[in-house]
């Protein structure tokens, strides 16, 4: 049995706004084993990034709160760690790559200054000389296939292209032998050929270092090609979980099915009319299953109670009352 690295249990995240709370995450469950590549897919605004920000403890303060749930990373609850401990965690264990590399890098410092900081403040590198640290920075840039690392260390983010900036972000994230990499739409703001290069790079580095990766994307194609297991998320909770080939050959949840049918195919098969409606208002979220107002197969019970996960087989579970009898 593989070792559980990250275990998110019934996580709730609310945002305090004028007049009440936005109830965004509504009992999210997710489990990541060490060295595994997991995908997280869903429409814009369904809580993918919020979940991961909760794991990193970088939800906006003081508005974002976690009233319930646990995030267990290596037998420690991330939510109850002290500031110093969580900082150590971010430095040595978990890191995150964001969608927009331009916004993730500080425009007034050179790449070298930003990259060296990461190495300098790591406990593992205590007592190392500047020269050795610089060599580590050069090596890390070489590892992400950036040509001419010396020149890049001396340049500012604005002097690099989008693809190069994202590679720098990956180099920053991979410093210090992390065990979990959260990649939040790492290729979405880039061109397809560059996206392909970036995803292949993340895949290769993860294999080499036996690092677990959570790949967030709204593109089902990206998820299919680069992950082993997938969670489908809708409006703040997981609706389906399966191994990647299984999910794509046999999607069960009506939301997953609808999402798959929307994707334009290279074979030119007809696309459907899309999913009617939109992501719910989190101020007054729908009762029961949050997908029921948009669901073509809704039943009376869907409005009353949130469906639990039904285990279909060893590696496929779905949160939908349609499969109540099959588990």
């Amino acid at each position: 049995m593989k070792e559980v690295l990250l275990d998110i249990k019934d996580l709730q995240v609310h945002f305090r706004v004028y007049g009440g709370f936005l109830k965004v995450l509504n009992g999210t469950n997710m489990r990541v084993y060490s060295g595994e590549k997991v995908g997280l897919v869903g429409e814009t605004g369904c809580g993918k990034t919020t979940t991961m920000k909760a794991v990193m403890r970088i939800l906006p303060k003081p508005h974002g709160i976690t009233p319930e749930g646990k995030i267990i990373f290596k037998n420690k609850n991330v939510l109850s760690l002290k500031t110093q401990e969580i900082e150590r965690l971010r430095r040595n264990e978990i890191s995150m790559i964001f969608q927009d590399p331009t916004a993730a890098l500080n425009p007034v410092f050179t790449i070298g200054e930003q990259l060296l900081d990461v190495f300098r403040y790591s406990k593992k590198n205590d007592g190392l000389k500047g020269k050795t640290l610089k060599q580590m920075a050069v090596d890390s840039l070489r590892a992400v296939a950036l040509p001419d690392p010396e020149r890049i260390l001396a340049s500012y983010p604005i002097q690099l292209s989008g693809g190069m900036r994202q590679r720098v972000c990956i180099a920053l994230a991979l410093a210090n032998q992390k065990q979990l990499l959260i990649a939040d739409e790492p290729g979405t703001s880039l061109d397809v050929t560059i996206q392909d290069q970036i995803l292949r790079l993340i895949h290769r580095l993860a294999e080499e270092r036996n690092m677990a990766v959570i790949l967030i994307s709204h593109s089902l194609g990206v998820i299919r090609e680069w992950t082993e297991r997938v969670y489908v998320m809708y409006a703040g909770s997981m609706v389906e979980e399966a191994t990647t080939p299984k999910l794509f050959s046999q999607p069960l949840h009506p939301y997953t099915q609808a999402l798959m049918e929307c994707v334009p195919r290279l074979t030119g098969m007809k696309t459907n009319e899309g999913i009617p409606g939109r992501i719910p208002d989190y101020f007054f979220p729908p009762t029961g299953c949050r997908f029921h107002p948009r669901c073509p197969k809704k039943m009376a019970i869907c409005q009353e109670e949130k469906p639990p996960f039904y285990q279909i087989d060893d590696n496929h579970q779905v949160a939908c009352y349609l499969y109540k009898g099959e588990s």
Binding site: V192, T193, Q195, D196, S219, L220, G221, V222, R224, E225, W226, F248, M260, V263, R265, L266, T267
Partner: peptide, 9 residues
């Protein structure tokens, strides 16, 4: 480079 969702593609 296009990520696709099915075997036929």
């Amino acid at each position: 480079s296009i990520p696709v969702v099915s075997e036929e593609e």
